[in-house]
Deep mutational scan, measured.
Amino acid sequence: MDVFMKGLSKAKEGVVAAAEKTKQGVAEAAGKTKEGVLYVGSKTKEGVVHGVATVAEKTKEQVTNVGGAVVTGVTAVAQKTVEGAGSIAAATGFVKKDQLGKNEEGAPQEGILEDMPVDPDNEAYEMPSEEGYQDYEPEA
């Protein structure tokens, strides 16, 4: 019985440690998101679009440190934060509304985080759909 109880105690310690790591990862992701939003706020009209992409990228980098179902929630929060940063930029006159959601080359930025393969159960990952990809044929 002692062996059984000791095993359960060790398992509990492992769960607590994993929860603490997840909590730490979420806190880091939130900190990076805040950094990115402050970065966007300090940019001029020309830099705002690039700044919004930076927020998304920093958040995406930190999301990889967070495991399990938390990833889905962090990704949703990050996307809403990026959308909010863009709205703030438009409201303050840093950028025109028609410039939001495009990178410096004018290509749409939507789907940055949505296409990231995420499995809350950590069982399997699927690649994003290939609808947006084109076949590449090298020139002879």
Rank of each mutant, 00 (worst) to 15 (best):
T22F: 03
P128I: 09
E13A: 08
V15C: 04
Q134H: 02
G51L: 10
P138R: 07
V37D: 00
A53T: 01
K10T: 11
K43E: 01
V26C: 03
G67D: 02
S9C: 06
G14I: 15
E35I: 15
E28S: 06
Y39N: 08
F4P: 00
S129H: 12
N65C: 11
E139D: 07
D119R: 12
V15R: 00
L38F: 09
A91E: 05
Q24C: 12
I112P: 05
G84A: 03
E104K: 00
E61A: 05
E28F: 05
Y125R: 05
A78M: 12
D121S: 09
G7K: 02
D2T: 05
V55R: 02
N65V: 15
I112K: 12
Y133F: 11
K21N: 02
P128C: 10
G86V: 02
S129K: 05
T33Y: 04
S87P: 00
G73N: 09
E105I: 09
K10Q: 05
Y39R: 00
A89I: 13
V49P: 02
L8S: 00
V71R: 06
E131G: 01
V16S: 04
D135S: 12
Q24Y: 10
P108V: 14
S87H: 10
A78K: 09
V52R: 02
A27E: 01
G106F: 03
A91S: 05
G93R: 06
K34F: 12
V49H: 00
G73I: 10
P120D: 12
K97S: 10
D121A: 05
G132A: 15
T92W: 15
V3S: 04
D115C: 11
A89P: 06
E83R: 11
T54Q: 14
Q109M: 09
L100T: 11
V77P: 03
D121F: 05
I112Q: 11
A85S: 05
V48A: 05
A124K: 13
D98G: 09
K6V: 03
A29C: 12
A140H: 05
V40T: 02
H50P: 03
G25Y: 07
S129I: 04
V95S: 06
E57T: 08
N65P: 03
Q109R: 03
T72M: 12
S87K: 06
Q99M: 12
V49A: 10
G86L: 13
A140C: 11
Y133R: 12
D2C: 09
A19L: 14
E123T: 09
V63W: 15
D2L: 07
V3Q: 03
V66S: 01
G25C: 15
V3N: 07
K10D: 04
D98R: 07
K12I: 14
E123H: 03
V63A: 13
M127S: 08
T92M: 14
K21C: 13
T22H: 03
Q109A: 11
G51V: 12
V66T: 04
H50N: 13
A107Y: 14
L113N: 08
E57R: 03
G31L: 13
E105D: 14
K97G: 13
D2M: 00
A29D: 01
E83Q: 07
T92F: 07
Y136P: 06
T33Q: 00
E137P: 14
E61C: 09
Y125M: 02
G67F: 13
G93H: 06
V82L: 13
M5S: 03
E131F: 02
Q109T: 14
K96H: 15
E46R: 01
S87W: 02
A69H: 12
E104F: 11
V26L: 07
E20K: 06
E13F: 09
P128S: 00
F94K: 00
G84H: 13
E105P: 14
G111E: 11
A19G: 15
V26Q: 00
D115L: 09
G73D: 05
Y133T: 09
A27L: 12
A107I: 07
K60N: 05
T81V: 11
E57S: 02
T33K: 04
M5W: 02
E61Y: 07
A89M: 13
Y133S: 02
K12N: 01
Q134V: 10
V63S: 02
K96Y: 14
G41W: 03
P138L: 11
A85D: 07
Q24A: 02
V15H: 01
A27H: 08
G106N: 14
A17H: 01
K21D: 01
S87C: 04
A76C: 14
K10P: 00
V48T: 03
G47R: 08
P120L: 04
K58E: 04
G93F: 09
A53W: 03
K96L: 15
V63H: 00
D135R: 03
A29H: 04
